[in-house]
């Protein structure tokens, strides 16, 4: 098997085993209702994690995503509540602001040659700080559009509800996978993560690609912020604190190499679902502290980083391919 597929396969197997074990204990977890809740509850995390996957495959990191979610939520709530804009207009403005923010970070990373860790850390403080300056409190959003959207769902067989935001997350994953694996931009992202110097020598537009990657990540975080505001019907400056780490965790658990160059959008989906599974298990159990989610995710992360290390160092001794000559 292709070695980069191994961590992905491992994630899928672990998810299947964990889900099977949960079902044995709580048969009620095997239903489309639970699946529907999975998707809805983790929509903002999943959408963020898609952007994070691109960033990490390119060899970077984006610490600003949680803060951008918080900022976007506040911005949307303010635009709707204080300025009386229609939510769709507010969404468009929020996405443009988030995209510009990401583009600025990407430009700083490329042109100033500052490590992504530092730039996005600064971005994180900037976004979180700005959101907190606008308001210290949670701003409720009471608009009929919101109630309409949140009550929109498709009924799945078995009575589960696929909410609009859950469906949106699935759509983002599908589009993300197509972009990553089937477009030139996707190839360039992998090329940057593989070897930035070689990529430049091979004609990859490094500046444009870097800026686009962080623009994409911030835009998706903005979208996640909108989803979060729909999910909670409010904008709160301290929303989604630490989500950047959940997203990074989901990406790594999904088989993406933290050093870049290898990874799958589909793996990230399983990574997000695995986090959702642990949360759901804790709810079903009822006695466990919700902090167990963090402990399990921490343990899984550790296992996966070790696993990747093993897979990639074991196969780095190159297999010899015997020459086959046409005229022989």
């Amino acid at each position: 098997m292709n070695r980069s597929l191994r961590p992905l396969a491992a994630t899928a197997v672990i998810f299947a085993l964990a889900y099977a074990a949960s079902i044995l204990q709580f048969p009620g977890m095997f239903s489309t209702r639970v699946l529907g809740n999975f998707l809805t509850d983790n929509a903002f995390l999943g959408i963020t994690a898609v952007g994070m996957t691109f960033v990490i495959i390119s060899g970077g990191i984006d610490l600003s995503v949680g803060a951008v979610i918080g900022f976007t939520g506040v911005l949307v709530a303010v635009l709707i509540g204080w300025f009386g804009l229609h939510p769709l207009v507010a969404f468009a403005i929020a996405l443009v602001v988030a995209a510009a923010f990401g583009a600025a970070m990407g430009a700083a990373i490329h042109y100033l040659e500052v490590p992504p860790f530092i730039v996005t850390l600064a971005g994180m403080f900037l976004a979180r700080g700005t959101a907190s300056v606008i308001t210290q409190d949670s701003i409720p959003v009471t608009h009929e559009f919101y109630s309409k959207v949140t009550s929109t769902y498709w009924l799945m067989p078995g009575g589960g509800r696929l909410s609009l935001i859950g469906a949106l997350m699935v759509l983002v994953f599908i589009v993300g996978a197509l972009v990553a694996h089937r477009t030139r931009f996707g190839s360039n992202v992998y090329a940057l993560g593989g070897n930035a110097v070689s990529a430049a020598l091979m004609g990859v537009p490094v500046a444009r690609t870097t800026i686009l990657i962080y623009t994409l990540s911030a835009t998706l975080s903005g979208l996640a912020g909108i989803v979060f505001s729909l999910y909670t019907s409010a904008g709160y400056p301290l929303a989604a604190v630490g989500v950047e780490l959940d997203a990074i965790g989901a990406v790594v658990i999904g088989g993406t190499l933290l050093t870049g160059g290898y990874g799958f959008i589909a793996g990230t989906f399983i990574g997000v679902m695995l986090q959702g599974l642990v949360q759901t298990y804790i709810i079903f159990d009822g006695t466990l502290s919700s902090w167990w989610t963090k402990i399990v995710i921490g343990g899984l992360l550790f296992v996966f980083i070790v696993l990747q290390r093993l897979v990639f160092s074991a196969s780095s001794s190159r297999s010899k391919v015997f020459w086959k000559l046409k005229h022989e």
Binding site: S4, S187, N188, Y190, A191, G193, G194, N195, V197, S198, A199, L201, M202, G203, V204, G261, Y262
Partner: peptide
């Protein structure tokens, strides 16, 4: 100076 993480075909046509 190619990309070890990508396929042979992609390295030729990147």
């Amino acid at each position: 100076n190619l990309l070890p993480n990508r396929s042979v075909a992609e390295n030729l046509f990147l």
